[in-house]
Every structure is written in structure tokens, then in C-alpha cells.
Design a protein around this nucleic acid. Structure first.
Length: 316
DNA sequence: TTCCTGGCCA
DNA sequence: TGGCCGGGAA
């Protein structure tokens, strides 16, 4: 399906956005402003539907952290991956998390985004989506109704998403907190989101982008983590070793990757990781940027030699 | 067997 | 830091 619209991501006023926490007052006003905007059309909808297209309308606002020298050729690599992404469809591209949700009021829509993100961990996109639709059909996609709902009901509705038992508990707890502390809305900062049960760094940053249209950090999932390490883009502080956790990867990436790429890098690498730079047997022969990849052709376990899959060493 | 757009707990 | 939650797909 053709995708051509430009993405009007909300611009960041001034230069408050250099990684430092903005003043509360500024943030609050931004939130109110965004809340009004999403009623008609939410920018992150477009971001999700058009990952390959320029994310930030106002480039002059972009801040380059540059506390660390960027890896050589990173721009050519991103360009190459972008081309590969356009020519090959990835599962992540068919996910439309806003389907059926856009009709909701902003507050409910944000809560729905949070729920969807919570459900998504270790779960295929379409499974997450279907679970979310069932919650919607049963009127549970609001903090108020979710809070009142029976935990067993929630559990049965979200099955078979990964870890559905725990997620059902988390959803109830999250709903209660949203009702009691946020008037049915969701927290509007990463720090506050992290206080919610079941919400870790990956989900917190994803929700900030999708629900609040605010970029406080890169959303690093297992794909971004793996691909970044294979490319040699990230390392443990003061060493040349790869990072050991997505959170380390996030911090390392943010030290050199220009902010204008912080949003798009996720879908770019997720789709790339799903189709070409796969966890098991990456298709290096199909990859057009393998010449820039220190790990290229080093993880190809000889096809069907024995049943023992030799754990590929990280060559970093 | 391993992984799926992770996070919690000991 | 590692075990655990979890059904389903490749």
C-alpha cells in the first residue's frame, strides 16, 4: 500500500530538548497543547504508518549529542537499511496500533496506547493487536473500566499474549493508578511511566512517543539492541565490548545518534531485524550494508550440520 | 530449539 | 545478573 504523507511531528519549542528534563511548566503546557492536537490527528499515527519518511519536520531543532564520535559510515548504513526496508515488507509494517482507537477521546486513546504497549512485550504484533481489539470491544480500553473489570476477565481477553497472567495483574494495577493519580489519564514523563508496574525503559519511551509525541529517549527493543551491536554502533562505557542490555544500548546510541533519528531508528531496525538481520541466521548475503558491518557473515551457522546450534560469538 | 518490539524479582 | 513468565511459530 502506498505511503506518502509527510509526517507533521510536533516541533519542539526552543532548545529545551537536549536531553535535560524540561521545566515542569513548559512540559505541562506542551502536554495541554498536544492533547488538543491529537483530537484531530495524532502525529505519531503517521510516524507509525510511515517509518521511512522524515520524522521531524523542523530539523533546526535537532540536537546532536556528540559526546562520542559516531561510528564511521553510519549515515550510509542507515540509508542502506532504509532502502532495504522499502523493498521488503516487514511484519512490523502491517501493525496499525491505532486501528479502532482513533475514535477515542485523547485520554482514552493514550490509555489504549499504554495498554497496547504493555501487551506487546514478547508478543507478535498481530497477537497484540487482536488482544487490544478484544479489550476495545468489551469496553475495557479506559482506565476507569479497566479498573473495575475482573482480573480473570482481562486475562481471558488478552490471551494468548505473552505472559498474560502477569500482564492482567499489571493492567489492573496500572488502571487503578491512572484513575487515582492521573484522573484516568496516563503519566506524561518517562520517570512517572517507569513507576507503573510492567513498564520498563522500552515501553516508557515508546509510550512517550506514541501517546505524548515527546521524544525523551530512543525506544530500544531486542531488535534495536541486537542490530546495533552487530553493526558495532554501541559499546559498554570505556570499552570496545558490545552492550549487554537494551538499556545500555539506549544510552550508548543516544551519545552519538542525532536526535532527528531517535524516533525513526526503532521501526527502521525492528523491520530490518525481522526480515534480514534476524536473530538466528542473519541473511547477510541479502544485506546491502554488510561491507560496513563488522559482524557480517560471522554468525552463519552452517546450514543443518548438526542439531546443535552453535551459539555465535559476538565479534565485537 | 530459539525467539517473539520486556520487566520483575531474588 | 539470571531465572522466570508463556503460547505459538519457524
Amino acid at each position: 500500500m502506498p505511503r506518502a504523507r509527510k509526517i507533521p511531528l510536533l516541533q519542539t519549542p526552543g532548545s529545551e530538548d537536549d536531553g535535560v528534563v524540561p521545566k515542569n511548566r513548559v512540559r505541562k503546557r506542551r502536554v495541554e497543547m498536544i492533547a488538543k492536537e491529537v483530537k484531530t490527528e495524532s502525529p505519531q499515527e503517521n510516524f507509525l504508518r510511515h517509518p521511512e519518511i522524515e520524522d521531524f519536520a523542523n530539523k533546526s531543532d535537532n540536537v546532536y549529542s556528540q559526546s562520542i564520535q559516531p561510528p564511521a559510515n553510519w549515515e550510509r548504513v542507515i540509508e542502506g537499511i532504509r532502502s532495504m526496508r522499502l523493498s521488503e515488507h516487514a511484519p512490523v509494517d502491517s501493525i496499525d496500533p491505532d486501528e479502532g482507537v482513533t475514535s477515542l477521546q485523547p485520554k482514552e486513546r493514550r490509555f489504549a496506547v499504554l495498554v497496547g504497549s504493555l501487551l506487546s512485550s514478547q508478543t507478535k504484533g498481530h497477537v497484540t493487536h487482536e488482544a487490544n481489539q478484544r479489550l476495545l470491544e468489551n469496553g475495557l480500553l479506559s482506565a476507569d473500566t479497566m479498573d473495575k473489570a475482573d482480573e480473570a476477565t482481562i486475562k481471558s481477553l488478552i490471551y494468548p499474549v505473552g505472559f498474560y497472567t502477569r500482564k492482567a495483574q499489571h493492567l489492573k494495577q496500572v488502571a487503578k493508578i491512572c484513575v487515582s493519580k492521573y484522573d484516568g489519564d496516563i503519566p506524561s514523563t518517562v520517570d512517572d511511566l517507569l513507576l507503573l508496574p510492567g513498564v520498563g525503559p522500552k515501553i516508557a519511551h515508546l509510550v512517550m512517543i506514541m501517546a505524548w509525541n515527546k521524544v525523551e529517549g530512543i525506544c530500544v527493543d531486542t531488535h534495536v539492541h541486537r542490530v546495533s551491536n552487530r553493526l558495532g554502533w554501541v559499546s559498554r562505557p570505556g570499552t570496545k565490548q558490545g552492550t549487554r542490555s537494551p538499556e545500555e544500548t539506549r544510552v550508548s546510541l543516544q551519545q552519538w545518534l542525532p536526535k532527528e533519528e531517535w524516533v525513526s531508528i526503532n521501526l527502521l531496525l525492528v523491520g530490518f531485524g525481522q526480515t534480514i538481520c534476524t536473530p538466528l541466521r542473519p541473511r547477510c548475503a541479502k544485506c546491502t550494508v554488510s561491507e560496513f558491518c563488522p559482524s557480517a557473515f560471522k554468525e552463519i551457522s552452517s546450514t543443518a550440520s548438526t542439531s546443535k546450534t552453535r551459539r555465535p560469538k559476538k565479534e565485537l
